[in-house]
C-alpha cells in the first residue's frame, strides 16, 4: 500500500488531487470523495473507495484514516495506526483560513511526515486580505485594461475567486477555458464562486477592467495576447521573492499560497511535538536545521519522482 505513489500502484492512498500526488493508473484507490471526484474529472472514469474526513479502514492490521489538511478541496492528511504507534502524513497542508476547503485539523502522532515546500525562513505568507486588496486596487487603477492572474487550475484559482467574492467583488470573473470544469466541480461541492465567464473568443472591449484568471502556463502565451492591455499577476507563495516574480515577468505579485509558510510549518511541529519528524517535499535541509536547533528529532525523506517544484 502506497501513499501518493508517483508510479501506478496496486493499492494507493491519495492525499489530494494535485498532479504530483494523484497520478492515474493505480489499481485500487482510497481518497476523500472530493479527491476522487477531482481524479475522475482529470483522468476519466477512475473509481475508488471514498473516505470522508474522520473515516477509516483497516489493512494488514494498520488502521488508516483521512483528516482535513486545509490545502485544497478534499485534501487530507493520512493517519496510520499500528500497535499503538501513530504516524501522520500531512500531504500538502496549510493552516490559514480558506473558504474553499475544510480547515486543517491537528492530529496527535508519534511520527509526523511533513511537507516543506516553503521550508525557508524567508517565506511568510501575508494575510490574504492584504493581497486581495492589492489586487482590487490595481484593478481600480487599470480602467482601460485588465488584470490577468496566473493561478493553478485546482485550488488556487477557486480560492482567489472565493476570496474576491468575500471582499465584495461581485462582477463576473473571467476564466481560461481549461479551468471551467474544475470551477464547476467546486461549485457542485458547495463552494459558491459567483458568475464566471470563459474568456475565450470575447472582444477586447468586453474585457476592459476585468479580472481574468488563467493557468500560469498561459500567462506569456498567445492566449494572453487577445486580452486588452493586461497587467500580469501571479498568485503564488513564490512571489514573496522579488527575483522569482521578475523571472516570470510578473508585474503584480500576489503572495497567496495553499501551502504552510515557515511559521505554520514550525508552529505545527511545536504544537504536535512528534517524537520524530520526517521531512519531505521541499526544503528539507532548512526545516531539518530548525528541528536540530529546537532539539526535535528529524530526518529528510527524499522521495523519488518529486524533483519538480510544487505549485506554490
Amino acid at each position: 500500500m502506497w501513499i501518493d505513489p508517483s508510479r501506478p500502484a496496486e493499492r494507493a492512498l491519495v492525499t489530494h488531487g494535485h498532479a504530483d500526488h494523484a497520478r492515474s493508473g493505480h489499481g485500487a484507490v482510497w481518497a476523500t470523495p472530493e479527491t476522487l471526484a477531482i481524479m475522475a474529472l482529470r483522468y476519466g472514469t477512475e473509481m475508488g473507495t471514498p473516505m470522508p474526513y474522520g473515516d477509516g479502514f483497516e489493512a494488514n492490521g494498520v488502521k488508516i484514516s483521512f483528516h482535513p489538511a486545509g490545502h485544497v478541496l478534499g485534501s487530507a492528511q493520512i493517519l496510520l495506526e499500528h500497535a499503538g504507534e501513530r504516524v501522520v502524513v500531512t500531504g500538502d497542508y496549510k493552516r490559514r483560513f480558506d473558504p474553499t476547503c475544510a480547515p486543517f485539523e491537528p492530529v496527535d502522532c508519534d511520527v509526523l511526515i511533513t511537507e516543506a515546500t516553503f521550508g525557508l525562513p524567508v517565506f511568510t505568507h501575508p494575510p490574504i486580505e492584504d493581497e486581495i486588496a492589492k489586487l482590487l486596487a490595481a484593478r481600480a487603477a487599470q480602467k482601460e485594461g485588465c488584470i490577468l492572474i496566473g493561478a493553478y487550475a485546482l485550488g488556487k484559482a477557486q480560492r482567489v475567486i472565493a476570496e474576491l467574492r468575500r471582499a465584495g467583488y461581485d462582477a463576473p470573473i473571467y476564466i481560461h477555458g481549461a479551468m471551467q470544469k474544475m470551477c464547476d466541480l467546486y461549485a457542485a461541492h458547495d463552494v459558491p464562486l459567483g458568475e464566471l465567464i470563459v474568456a475565450t473568443g470575447l472582444a477586447k472591449a468586453e474585457m476592459k477592467g476585468a479580472i481574468v484568471i488563467a493557468p500560469p502556463s498561459a500567462l506569456n502565451d498567445r492566449w494572453a495576447q487577445r486580452l486588452p492591455d493586461p497587467i500580469t499577476a501571479m498568485a503564488s507563495g513564490w512571489m514573496r521573492v522579488r527575483q522569482r516574480a521578475r523571472q516570470r515577468n510578473v508585474e503584480l505579485p500576489l503572495v497567496i499560497s495553499d501551502h504552510a509558510d515557515w511559521t505554520e510549518l514550525t508552529e505545527t511541529l511545536l504544537e504536535l511535538r512528534p517524537s520524530e519528524t520526517w521531512i519531505t517535499h521541499g526544503r528539507t535541509d532548512a526545516l531539518g536545521r530548525w528541528c536540530e536547533l529546537h532539539q526535535l528529532k528529524a530526518r529528510a525523506l527524499d522521495l523519488v519522482g518529486r524533483e519538480e517544484e510544487d505549485e506554490g
Partner: peptide, 27 residues
C-alpha cells in the same frame, strides 16, 4: 539575529542579502 546556516540557505535562495534580511525579519 539568525542562525548562520538558516541565513546562508536563505541567502543562497533569495540571491540578495538585503532582501533576505528583510524577509527573515520578524513580522
Amino acid at each position: 539575529r539568525f542562525d548562520p546556516m538558516l541565513f546562508r540557505m536563505s541567502r543562497d535562495y533569495v540571491g540578495d542579502t538585503a532582501e533576505t534580511v528583510a524577509l527573515m525579519w520578524p513580522e
